[in-house]
Nucleic acid binder design. Structure first.
Length: 421
RNA sequence: GGAAGGUUGGCAGAGCGGUAAUGCAGCGGAUUGCUAAUCCGUGACCGGUAAUACUGGUCCACAGGUUCGAGUCCUGUACCUUCCGCCA
């Protein structure tokens, strides 16, 4: 959410942002509603003032005077009711628009329609040249009996996965490795649920727009969260933190659920796009300072790059353009790991700076030491490790001619010191 | 699944229809020289205003209702505690 005062004062910038982010909102209509609501509230405030003056006198009045005061108060109530009725249609309409207004992107974000206009900032590592015909991760798993896709599809439907034996251990090892890395950087490990209330999804900005991507449990009136970010954001909802409590650094661990409604036919085979997966999320709540938030942004990005380097995966850093970055984001870089079977880079990490856009929604504030002022925090997040997705490039890049998989050195301590899976 | 009790400012805690006591903490100020004490002030949000001056409105879990007036009465919802039942 943006500050309505900011929208009033920077109308053309907000309109331009809506265009660049493909968000369809009539900002002029919204500001018209804003003015009308403000005027109604002023009238209501006046009437309430009058009413308070009368009702506070009533206890000390007698007989006729009292009756008259009660009548006057009732008259004011009638007037109040008229304005309240007017508000009851305008306020929700306005609120709904406020939830949808996108965050202003950083000045260096490339402008573009969709993911085809994202910009590759740099590439690290060189895609491996195979001296044999490389297999895709699906075949590697099948031939080693490290998965059982057909049986699990029978039980759980498409886009589900199992991992068996060494591959199952590998999945857990990656999460352990990630937790150790983040703990060393001062992050607090935190395991969170995946079933969340609707408010939590509003808090992050996934609602009201992203309902199709989210599973709903009607019996419980809960939603299945697609990322720990949703719970982590809401943990501190409605709090006023002390400045010295910041930054809050979380390494969130949770099962994640995504309906993948908009991706029919894409990546149906294998581990890249499944309905349920596990993720360690990097998450930061920091004070409202652009330089500080950029420092944390770089830390989150750097940590993710270390992961890919430790796992010896060639990758590229992608600056997501305005049309691909999501309404709430100030800045978003994706990391994509080289995936030999597809002969392209595939997303493994997504690093975002939201500034105060989420914190306003979730009402996460802090008291500034120097001034005593209450301000909205800034929030940032990035993937740490998401499995099984990262296993696709992992298995494919490290496969050997005889169908084995080499374990990169940095991961071996988590795999019993073994060199091969 | 059933039953009972509860939810008030950062924390503790009064309040049983007349417009939120009090204590502690934090922050700001004043004062006294005795390593600290005392006193005063201090919530959030939205308006009016040049204003951190002054001033008005809203906020007692949330949403409705009754009433001239609701923390207080009624209804619904959420959450917490305890007990019973059921169960991987």
């Amino acid at each position: 959410m943006l500050d309505i005062k900011f929208i009033r004062e920077n109308t053309s910038l907000v309109k331009k942002t809506c265009e660049q982010k493909n968000v369809d909102i009539d900002i002029d209509l919204m500001l018209k509603l804003d003015r009308e609501i403000l005027a109604i509230n002023q009238k209501l405030q006046d009437l309430r003032e009058q009413k308070n003056a009368i009702t506070s006198k009533i206890p000390s009045l007698k007989d006729e005077e009292k009756k008259q005061a009660i009548t006057e108060s009732k008259d004011i109530n009638d007037k109040i009711k008229v304005y309240e009725t007017e508000l009851s249609t305008k306020q929700p309409e306005f609120d709904d628009m406020m939830w949808r207004v996108p965050n202003i992107p950083a000045p260096d974000v490339p402008v573009g329609k969709d993911d085809s206009e994202n910009v590759v900032l740099r590439r690290e590592g060189t895609p491996r040249k195979f001296d044999f015909e490389p297999r895709d991760h699906y075949d590697i798993l099948e031939m080693n009996d490290w998965a059982d896709f057909k049986r699990v599809a029978k039980v759980c439907g498409s886009r589900s996965y199992t991992l068996k034996g060494a591959a199952s251990r590998l999945e857990i090892a990656l999460h352990m490795y990630m937790m150790d890395k983040l703990t060393a950087k001062g992050f607090t490990m935190i395991t969170v649920p995946s079933m969340v209330k609707e408010e939590a999804l509003y808090g992050t900005g996934h609602f009201p727009t992203g309902r199709d991507d989210v599973y709903y449990l009607p019996k419980e009136n809960l939603y299945l969260s697609g990322t720990a970010e949703i719970v982590l954001t809401s943990l501190h909802r409605d709090e006023i933190l002390e400045e010295n409590q910041l930054p809050i650094l979380y390494a969130g661990y949770s099962p994640c659920f995504r309906s993948e409604a908009g991706s029919a036919g894409k990546d149906v085979r294998g581990l890249i796009r499944v309905h349920q997966f596990m993720k360690v999320e990097q998450y930061v709540i920091c004070k409202a300072d652009l330089a500080e938030s950029e420092k944390w942004y770089n830390t989150l990005l750097e940590t993710a790059e270390e992961v890919l380097k430790d796992l010896e995966l060639p990758y590229q850093v992608l600056a997501c353009c305005t049309g691909d970055m999501g309404a709430g984001k100030y800045k978003m870089y994706d990391l994509e790991a080289w995936t030999p079977s597809q002969n392209k880079y595939r997303e493994t990490h997504s690093c975002s700076n939201l500034l105060d856009w989420q914190a306003r929604r979730a009402n996460i504030r802090y008291r500034e030491n120097a001034t005593g002022k209450v301000k909205y925090c800034y929030t940032l997040n990035n993937t740490g490790i998401a499995t099984p997705r990262i296993l696709a490039p992992f298995l494919e890049n490290h496969q050997t001619a005889d169908g084995k998989v080499r374990i990169p050195e940095k991961l071996r301590p988590y795999m019993g010191g073994k060199e091969y899976l």
